[in-house]
Simulated scan of single mutants.
Amino acid sequence: MDEAAVKSPPPDDDLLAALLAGKPTPVKPAAAEKPEPAEETPHYHGHRDRLRQRFIASGPDALQDYELLELLLFQAIPRRDVKPLAKELMSAFGSLWAVTQASAEALRNRFNFSDATIAHIRVVGAIGLRMARQQVMGQPILSSWQKLLDYCAGAMAHEPVEQFRLLFLDRKNTLIADEVQQRGTVDHTPVYPREVVRRALELGASAVILVHNHPTH
């Protein structure tokens, strides 16, 4: 056997000195680990910051509808580039208002949204309708007719089925109640005059406005 193959490596001087002196064996400190590189910031974070600043500085008129929808989606979906998604939603439903009025089933089935995201989107539509309703409730109809039309359009335009709504007025033509009397199918809804009269008497209404929609598909 080759003598060089079995020759031991020369002893470490510090280790040999420690053994001869009966001292604990010195241990060399381990090399410090290199820190892991910082995670790269997603490219869309800069876009989000710029869009927020433009909205704050210039107001909503400076943004297109899909960009306003982006601002909404930022909070609901924080770890995804939502610009393409906002455009896809606008294309699917046709308008910003229609997106916020979309059914939970449509948002879940077509876009695989979680319940949290669905609630985040739909609550905006609910707040908008609530505010529109507050502008007409308790107001004389003749002086707020356009607001009433806008409210009815917002409340019923995107309903998937026909709806029969009753607006009850007092003797001063002030709106005192707004109720959905019946919901039907995509092309039909029943109307029961006796129920309309009964409800008007219960509320002490002097007049009733009947509102009816025709769903579009």
Rank of each mutant, 00 (worst) to 15 (best):
F55K: 00
I118T: 05
Y44H: 10
F113Q: 02
Y66W: 13
V124S: 09
H43K: 11
S91P: 01
D49L: 09
Q64F: 07
Q101F: 07
Q101T: 01
H212R: 13
A86W: 05
V124M: 13
H45A: 14
G204P: 00
P42Y: 04
Q139C: 09
D178Q: 02
H47F: 09
Q135D: 06
V191T: 06
Q139H: 11
S95P: 03
R199L: 10
D187Y: 05
L210C: 08
A4C: 09
H158K: 04
H45R: 10
Y44S: 04
I56Y: 09
S8E: 14
A57W: 01
D12T: 03
D61H: 14
H47T: 05
E67T: 02
D81V: 04
P42Q: 11
D2G: 08
Q182E: 12
K172P: 00
M1Q: 10
L71Y: 06
A126R: 14
F164W: 08
L15S: 11
A200F: 05
T185R: 14
T185S: 13
K23G: 13
A32L: 14
L15R: 12
D49G: 13
V161D: 02
A205C: 08
S95F: 00
V161W: 02
Q134A: 15
Q182R: 12
Q135K: 15
R194K: 10
W97P: 04
V191Q: 12
A126C: 08
L107W: 01
A153F: 11
C152W: 10
E195F: 09
D170R: 03
P11Q: 04
P190F: 10
A119K: 14
G204I: 02
S206I: 03
I141V: 12
V197C: 07
G59T: 09
F111W: 03
F168W: 08
E40Q: 12
P37W: 00
T100G: 06
P160L: 07
V180P: 06
L51D: 05
P11F: 03
D170M: 05
P190H: 12
E202G: 04
L89P: 00
